[in-house]
Nucleic acid binder design. Structure first.
Lengths: 197, 197
DNA sequence: CAGAGGTGTAAGTGTTCACTTACTATACTA
DNA sequence: TAGTATAGTAAGTGAACACTTACACCTCTG
């Protein structure tokens, strides 16, 4: 009998690194040589873990949602009220946005949407994110506001769009940090209709 | 004396085609061979007009704003009141969003933001768009609402984010057309605070 | 301990693609 | 019409890169 394979274990260990490299460099410039180098292995080892570069990219897309939802659930673990929850997420995202550079993966993926596998990976990721945000928006809405203007679904899409825009602003330095943060909070508040007067 | 150069003229004629190809295929798959083929010329002719592929891409980025502002100004030409203007733009964008596929260029560019030239082309484009939208939001705000919750600047960024998200939703078919349109209008209304009760 | 099958190293390989070169044909001007 | 610079044709080049192959080495199991 041979020794037992450690492929799964190694795969799990390398995914965050692969994800990181795609985040920094995008698809085109994240060459297989670069990926291997950063993973401290040779190229052919990557090809034992994934059949091709696209599969590595798909794994990175999945990792994004996983990582972010871990962070969020940690944030929410000690939230007393659901109203607090969304505020916390917004505040966290306001500050830490783009730290992981994961939106670069999303942008790279969005230029490859004619590939059915990439498209469905992205679609799945967005659906899960939307559902999650939707849930928190719903829970976090101030009950005092009997008649919300926006449905939670629309508000959640708006928030995802806001987060995207905020990442772009940050990346292109379109606004100084403070202003960007204020913009994010103001628009998020407006969308969630949590502005009690 | 030689015959007069038609380079400028030809450049102007080809830019929309180049822009179109980048819109359809993104940066990576828009090969110089493909660009030349669609322009009905040989590759070296493109290289007489631009020094390299990046320059072609930069020209396409500039073209995006030009084209869109032409459309908008045509839309606004026969608007009686400024309040109508923004509504018209929103309605137009709601329906025609993504027709040109120009956001693909933006996404492609956003994965190349470490290149200073691409970065500044993008930055310029966003600043101009923001200014334009800002202007229309300001003009279109209902004067009855004395106290707006959002500054026009923030609202404009929110709208740009909304447009981006809407394009993503369309591309990934995350919502059926009608729902996407309703979402866009609802969120836009919320952001512009134009909801008179 | 034997050896099967796993892990790691190193050097390709074929293709794609941005970009070039050498040349011919054309059209404008003096 | 002669001469010159431009427009167009066609083949090529070198490099980058995704992916492979050949082989040595190790490690766990029966």
């Amino acid at each position: 009998m041979p020794r037992p394979s450690q492929i799964e274990e190694q795969t799990r260990k390398l995914i965050p690194i692969v994800c990181q490299v795609f985040s920094e460099l995008g698809y085109r410039r994240a060459t297989t040589a670069e990926l291997a180098g950063r993973c401290r292995v040779r190229e052919n080892i990557l090809y034992r873990l994934w059949p091709n570069k696209k599969a590595m990219f798909l794994a990175a897309i999945d990792e994004i949602f996983q990582a972010r939802s871990v962070v969020w659930s940690q944030l929410l673990e000690d939230s007393q009220t659901p109203e607090q929850a969304m505020q916390r997420i917004v505040r966290y995202e306001t500050i830490h946005q783009g730290d992981s550079g994961f939106y670069r993966i999303v942008f790279a993926a969005l230029t490859e949407t004619d590939d059915p596998e990439i498209q469905s990976a992205l679609t799945g990721m967005y659906r899960r994110f939307h559902k999650l945000v939707c849930h928190h928006v719903d829970a976090g809405r101030n009950p005092g506001h009997s008649e919300a203007i926006l449905s939670a679904e629309s508000a959640a899409w708006g928030l995802l769009g806001l987060a995207t825009m905020s990442n772009i602003i940050r990346e292109l330095k379109l606004l100084p940090k403070r202003q960007r943060e204020k913009m994010f909070e103001d628009v998020a508040e407006c969308l969630m209709n949590s502005n009690d007067s």
